[in-house]
Amino acid sequence: MSKNNGSSLAYRIISIVILLVLAFLFLFPLYWIVTGSLKTQQAINSATPDWWPKEFTLRNYETLFSKRTAPLFQLGSLTGPTVPGAIRWLINTVFMAVMAMLLTCVTAAMAGYSLAKKRFTGRYLLFSLIVAAMALPKQVILIPLIREMSSLGLYDNIWAVILPTVGWPFGVFLMKQFSEGIPGEMLEAARIDGASELKTFTTVVYPMIKPGVGALAIFTFINSWNDYFLQLIMLTSSNKLTISLGIATMQAENSTDYGLIMAGASLAAIPIILVFLVFQKYFTKGITMGAVKG
């Protein structure tokens, strides 16, 4: 220990300096999005960048919100009040991510428990199928999915984005890992007490896998929010877009108005970053659990 103390201290200082520089570089694009959204058109178009906005303006956000309008919601013949298109996109995105999250958590928690603890015929086969599917590139199935959704009449419908997200077996895999830890004696005891299968699941199993469900929930929410490719191929009409898709469309139409595009990018990124920051402990846990024995 003693002999390399000197060099190890120097090494630690150097590595901390490098880490801080890297952290700065990784944070910079985000900083540039947010400050860019608050800069004037003139500052944006100048060849000499303002590292900090000399003059703050909300004009980019005004343009963003006045560019398109859409009804707040449409339920059958019921139509909500007219709001800026970007707000509607945000609502679509939240709806999509929440639905994908709820359905994934419920189905995956049940399936993971079943695969970990139930002794039914064919479970090894099913589990192998799930693992094999996970090793394949998800995007390969997207093109066939378009035709499947068209024949189901779900093309250009937010459910065409939600359903495949729920089907992706990562959640089942993750929940199986968490359910392995449930002691068999507790399930045995519940059965001897005459508890029904469903009751055993809600009162014995669920409390034990709750941290896992939390991790899966946040993981699914963020991934669904950011799954641009799936959203791109499934949604086309202006009222049905998600926020990422809406910004991408705007970018294609006004490719040089960077102030406006940065305002859109802030609107897409900031909510999901806040969600991530609040729940990041669960998130980290989900990533690591999914990899154990993976």
Binding site: L19, L22, A23, F26, L27, P29, L30, W32, I33, G36, I222, W225, N226, Y228, S244, L245, I247, A248, Q251, Y258, I261, M262, G264, A265, S266, A268, A269, I272, I273, F276, L277, Q280, T284
Partner: peptide
């Protein structure tokens, strides 16, 4: 540090891409 290096993933491909396009 964990959060900082993870942020570009969370920010989402569209937001990340448009800012890089500008840069």
């Amino acid at each position: 540090f964990r959060i900082v290096f993870y942020l570009p993933v969370v920010t989402g491909s569209v937001a990340v891409t448009v800012v890089w396009k500008w840069m």
